[in-house]
Simulated scan of single mutants.
Amino acid sequence: MNSPASLEIVSPGAYASVQDIGRRGFRRIGVPWAGVLDPRLMRIANALVGNPGTAPVIECFDGGLQVLARGAAVRVAVAGDAVLEIEHDGERKPLPAWRSVTLADGDILRIRRMGSGRIAALALEGLALPQVLGSASTYARAALGGVDGRALAAGVCVPAQPASGAERILPEPPEVDERPIRVVFGPQADHFSAETFDTFLGSDYRVTAEADRMGVRLEGPVLGHLGPAEIISDATVPGSIQVPGKGQPIVLLADAQTAGGYPKIATVIGSDIPRLAACRPGQTLRFAAVSAAEGERIARETEAETLALLAAIRPFVAEGVDLTALYSANLVGGVVNARSPEYRPLTAGDD
């Protein structure tokens, strides 16, 4: 029996799609991973509503997403530095991110804008969609996964289950990391001179308007090639930094092609891909080189930080209510068993 609860997309904002951990194991046959651009946001949002960590979420860019509860109360949570608003019976109120909230039938949740970054993950309790090649992630270019293989649009309803359990909150969200984007050189490092690497690491690069789930084009000092600007096409991965003939780098992301013919000067480490993907058009960034071993160490450190954030999630307590004190107090004193021999009715003169 299907649940009556669902979440209707009133507006998808700049771009919104259903994503999970991604479609792994098929790059050899030309199928990109897809999946969330920031796995930490996915895991936190899901934990806030009680879903498994890699359950599908709604990933959105730059605010503007509006969703409406349909059929029954549903529980949602937004992870990301987002400015939120909830509308109930025509009354609008601000709502902090990094917590779950129950939307009554007819309530609207809006992501008005992003504070820092441009990516937010909205988790919906009980969200479950059919998997294609082991994932519910939307890869719109091939109409795979998600809802009918497409990005979310106004009027689309995403199935859910009626809200249950307690609302939760992450008291101290992760801080914004403004360090350079860390990279490992190669795999075509021999296509570039030492001077080019100095330019690459010593210059600011600006994110252009061509920045989406497929990749990010950067603008800055030209990166020259030692030889031809093209190679025989070989494998790429999210994080690959291609340098085409014009010398302006392109960083590939989750929806990018699985092979390419431009030399790759470096590869962004996995821990920093979410930070780069969250850069807005016009924002500048710098790169810093690390070894592969250092990249692995950073990955372990990042995972430990994520686990600490997940462990810090606790039940949400409305302002002024201390549930711990409430549950530990003897709220009903002097209770007696009416069937006990010691029981007798109160009489005149009793205190």
Rank of each mutant, 00 (worst) to 15 (best):
A45I: 10
Y139W: 06
D148V: 12
G53D: 14
M42G: 03
A140G: 06
R141S: 07
F287T: 00
G134D: 01
L170Y: 07
T54C: 10
D212W: 04
D177T: 09
G90Y: 00
G90M: 08
R314W: 10
T302W: 02
R28N: 14
P244D: 03
H225T: 01
L95Y: 09
F185G: 07
I9A: 07
P56T: 01
G64R: 09
G349V: 04
L285W: 12
G215Q: 02
G53R: 04
V183M: 04
F316P: 04
A304Y: 11
V207C: 07
G270K: 00
M114T: 08
A5Q: 04
W33Q: 15
P180K: 11
V183W: 09
M114S: 07
A14K: 03
V336G: 03
I265G: 05
E125P: 05
E8K: 12
P345I: 04
P162R: 09
F200S: 05
L285Q: 10
E8Q: 15
R150E: 09
R168W: 09
G25H: 02
G25Y: 05
L170F: 07
I9R: 11
D255Q: 12
L309T: 06
A166S: 13
I119Y: 03
R23D: 00
A45Q: 01
L37Y: 03
D20Y: 11
Y15I: 12
A79Q: 05
G333L: 07
P94S: 03
G71V: 03
R27V: 13
G115I: 07
I108T: 15
L133K: 02
Q66T: 15
R141P: 02
A304F: 02
E294H: 10
A77D: 08
E230C: 05
D198C: 07
S6H: 02
H191A: 01
I58Q: 10
Q66L: 06
D212M: 04
D105A: 07
V335E: 14
Q161R: 08
G239M: 10
G134N: 01
E301A: 08
G334C: 03
M1W: 12
V183H: 11
Q257H: 12
E125D: 00
A97C: 10
R28K: 13
P341Q: 00
R112K: 14
A292G: 15
F200A: 01
E175W: 08
D81C: 12
Y327I: 11
A34T: 11
A5C: 00
S6Y: 06
R206S: 08
